[in-house]
């Protein structure tokens, strides 16, 4: 029976087109993604947008990391800050074109001055930016990555005492 459920789950996962949840308000995003985190899982949130060139340039590194660590307790979420009216016209076509495998959500709450600090108080609001969370630990990087190694080095810091 367990096996059957697993099979059904896999079948759905493989066949269903990728869903893109859209959060027009911050609070539901916070509830769904930043609260009640599994203590042993490393969560990686990359804040990006289809119009942001340095963001687009570094996405392949995030995708590669996600692919390499897919059997480990990592959870990658690409948080698009595209405007709500661009979800169908820009975000989804982009994901299809680039064959994005990581989970994508759109955070389209325009009242950013009220939620930026809730992501990280050091964030100026510029993108790209990346939040890494594990247990009670948080690391925040307001920068863009030029290489896969540079990204990996930062992401893995969450498991080190630095």
């Amino acid at each position: 029976m367990k096996y059957l459920i697993l099979m059904a789950f896999l079948a759905v996962r493989l066949s269903a087109p990728k869903q893109v949840p859209v959060f027009t308000e911050f609070q539901p995003f916070q509830q769904a993604h930043l609260e009640n985190l599994h203590p042993d899982t490393t969560y990686i949130y990359n804040f990006w947008a289809t119009w942001c060139r340095p963001c687009i340039a570094e996405l392949p590194y995030f995708e590669k990391f996600n692919e390499k660590h897919k059997d480990e307790p990592y959870k990658m979420v690409l948080v698009s800050l595209d405007f709500e009216d661009k979800v169908e016209t820009a975000v989804k076509p982009f994901m299809e074109r680039k064959n994005i495998k990581s989970d994508v959500v759109v955070l389209a709450d325009g009242k950013a001055s009220e939620w930026i600090d809730k992501i990280d108080s050091s964030w100026s609001g510029a993108i790209p930016a990346t939040l890494v969370a594990k247990g009670d630990r948080r690391l925040f990087f307001e920068k863009s990555y030029e290489t896969y190694d540079a990204l990996t080095s930062d992401l893995l810091k969450i498991d080190k005492n630095e």
Binding site: C52, L81, A112, I116, W123, G125, A126
Partner: peptide, 10 residues
């Protein structure tokens, strides 16, 4: 002092 999302200066 307030914050907003913006495009990083390159």
């Amino acid at each position: 002092y307030t914050k907003a999302i913006g495009c990083s200066i390159k």
